[in-house]
Computed example of a mutant assay.
Amino acid sequence: MYKTKSLLLTLLLSLGLSSALSTQAAVITFDDLPETDIGSISEGYGGFNWGDSFLTNVAYAHKDAIPGTGFETGVVSGNYAAFNFLATTSVISGEKFDFNGAYLTAGWNDGLNIEVTGFLDNLALFTKTVVVNTSAAQWFDFNFAGINSLSLRAWGGVSIDPNNGGEFFVMDNFTFNETPAAAVPESSSLALLLLGVAGILLGRKNKKA
């Protein structure tokens, strides 16, 4: 009986772990990239291509590289965050994925608009426009499911620096999840079934006693 109870407990724990893993989103923080003030994100980092040409490349910057701007306040974790190189539209692509969301900040222009569009094989499935400032990073939920390409286009706003500016956005904690949400209730149902079996076995043991 002790072996049966131990086996059931092991199964339940493994199910709980697998459920947690199936719902855990992957978060790209840009903090494991080479240490530098400003650098280019290499192809394949985090499982994605960070641009489809030199002009639409996504770069990253240290929070102290441009102090007093959104390049500093836009860093949520660690010391680094991504930004749109040359203030152009950025393209992020890879295998099919679900884009949950990210922290977004304006680099220089308060009131910056960012249009985020999710594509599947060049067909636009989702689009959402958000407005950001330089003062603090804001989390935005997007929940674009089943896409393989993401574009971020920024425009407008007023620069906080009369000598510098540009339609730059800063992005941190890029969050995605490739696991279908349907995996969770299936595991939960199986866990409940095992609990029921355990109850029956314990009941039989008590009757024999």
Rank of each mutant, 00 (worst) to 15 (best):
A102N: 14
K63P: 05
D52W: 07
S159E: 09
Y80F: 02
K208H: 12
G203Q: 10
L17H: 12
F176A: 01
E186P: 03
D121Y: 11
T29D: 10
G107Q: 00
S18M: 14
P162N: 02
G146K: 03
L21R: 12
G94H: 06
F99C: 08
I114R: 00
N173R: 04
D31I: 08
F48Y: 13
T88K: 10
Q138D: 13
W108S: 11
V158W: 07
N206P: 11
L123T: 14
T117E: 02
N206I: 15
T127L: 09
P180T: 07
S22T: 11
A61V: 04
L13C: 12
F169Y: 04
F97S: 07
H62M: 13
L104G: 00
I92G: 00
L112S: 03
D141N: 07
T129S: 13
N173F: 08
A20Q: 15
L202G: 15
A137T: 00
D37H: 10
D64T: 11
G47Q: 06
A25S: 11
S188D: 15
V91S: 05
F119K: 04
L120G: 04
S77Q: 10
A191D: 09
G165M: 02
L11K: 02
V58I: 13
N143R: 05
F83W: 07
G51E: 02
S188L: 09
N177R: 01
N57S: 14
I92Y: 02
N49S: 07
G78C: 08
V170C: 11
G16M: 07
M1F: 14
H62F: 10
N133M: 04
G196V: 08
N57F: 08
S93H: 09
T89P: 01
D64K: 05
A20V: 09
N84I: 02
T29L: 10
I41C: 01
A26M: 14
S135G: 15
G70S: 13
S189Q: 11
Y103K: 01
S22V: 11
A124Y: 05
I147P: 02
S149H: 01
I200H: 15
G203K: 06
N133G: 02
T117P: 07
V116W: 00
D52R: 12
L112C: 09
T36E: 06
E35M: 14
M1K: 08
S40H: 08
A65S: 08
S42Y: 12
A136F: 14
G118N: 03
N133E: 06
L9N: 10
V130Y: 00
K205A: 05
E115D: 14
N84L: 02
L7G: 08
G156C: 07
I28P: 05
Y60Q: 09
L21Y: 13
T105R: 00
F99M: 01
G156F: 02
F71P: 00
T69K: 03
K128R: 11
L123A: 15
G118A: 04
S42I: 15
L195N: 10
F144K: 02
F168M: 01
F83A: 00
D161K: 15
L7D: 08
A182H: 08
S6D: 14
N206V: 15
S187F: 06
Y60G: 11
A65I: 04
V184A: 04
G196S: 04
G165H: 01
